[in-house]
């Protein structure tokens, strides 16, 4: 057994946040449990109460339309996202990132909401959601509010959400059909593993709009400051990569951990920026080389 805690399966969103509010910070939302239960077992988390939101039907839905974008309910497992045609077509970088989280078994339980709220610097779905300007829909006794993923991460393992707030869905704004997204990840083995470095990017050749985000290279996943000018599809990649690297260095602070040294992360950064640009601008497929 995993220690001692109580469990309640909430039937409504209100029921869920009311429980969280009542527990005064000693409760945790149980989504897929693939991080939470591991942390409880390891003694890194010791909530008194787990509030399971998977009984709330409305959190189970994933809807997508090119016009309105995607709405991913907080309980939707990652495999559903990986397999969703709309996500795969319109946000391939997100589908790719979701696919690299854990193993098939894990992805049948794990959720995007959990991946984000765990606030690991290495969270694979964070970089693509950052570049896609995704928004969390959050409910609490004070009402509903929207939290952009861009303002979610406060520190390693720490989000800006209050203890009584429940994520109900992740909304991804629509993007033009011309928009490209890509995701690249480096890990120690080719099978399931946490990232040494992960990067995601979004590019629209029609507007020249380019955004990239980097994970596992700072206390939180970070968005690289914008270039401030449109990027044409035939922009010379080496030069562009250099400029982006210079911008990235302002926001990353790689550390050494059990997966890699800071030096290695730093050395990978330009390689990954360049490959990401090749994927976005030239649509070359680096994934096989990466894995």
């Amino acid at each position: 057994m995993l220690g001692e805690f109580e469990y309640v399966r909430a039937k409504t969103i209100k029921g869920g946040y009311s429980l969280l509010a009542k527990a005064g910070g000693e409760a945790a939302v149980l989504a897929g449990g693939t991080d939470l239960l591991v942390n409880i077992r390891a003694g890194k988390a010791s909530p008194r109460l787990l509030v399971d939101m998977k009984g709330v039907k409305s959190l189970d839905r994933l809807t997508f339309s090119p016009k309105t974008g995607a709405l991913i309910g907080a309980s939707v497992p990652l495999n559903t996202i990986v397999e969703n045609r709309g996500i795969r077509t319109r946000y391939p970088g997100l589908a790719e990132a979701a696919w690299t989280v854990g193993s098939y078994q894990i992805r049948n339980r794990a959720t995007i909401a959990g991946n984000l709220c765990n606030a690991s610097p290495a969270a694979d779905t964070a970089p693509p959601l950052l570049v896609l300007d995704a928004i969390l829909e959050v409910a609490s006794p004070r009402g509903e509010r929207e939290v952009p993923v861009r303002s979610l991460f406060v520190d390693s393992k720490k989000t800006s959400l209050s203890f009584d707030e429940v994520v109900t869905a992740i909304r991804i704004p629509p993007v033009p059909a011309t928009t490209r997204t890509a995701f690249l990840k480096r890990q120690r083995v080719k099978g399931h593993d946490l990232a040494i470095l992960n990067v995601a990017g979004r590019y629209d050749p029609a507007t020249g709009d380019l955004q990239i985000a980097i994970g596992s290279c700072a206390k939180t996943p970070v968005l690289v400051p914008p270039l401030g000018e449109p990027v044409p599809p035939d922009a010379p990649i080496p030069e562009l990569a250099r400029r982006l690297e210079a911008l990235a260095i302002q926001v990353v602070h790689p550390i050494s951990d059990l997966r890699a040294t800071a030096e290695y992360r730093r050395a990978l950064l330009p390689v990954f920026i360049r490959r990401l640009l090749e994927a976005l601008l030239q649509q070359s497929d680096h994934r096989e080389a990466i894995r």
Partner: peptide
């Protein structure tokens, strides 16, 4: 290639399969 245990001051920096990576089928 893949298996490594860092050691510092007599302490092995390893927790389990999360930190000690043995080859998977993809490797």
């Amino acid at each position: 290639v893949t298996e490594e245990i860092a050691e510092k001051d007599g302490r092995l920096k390893v927790k389990g399969f999360t930190t000690y990576r043995i080859p998977t089928i993809r490797d």
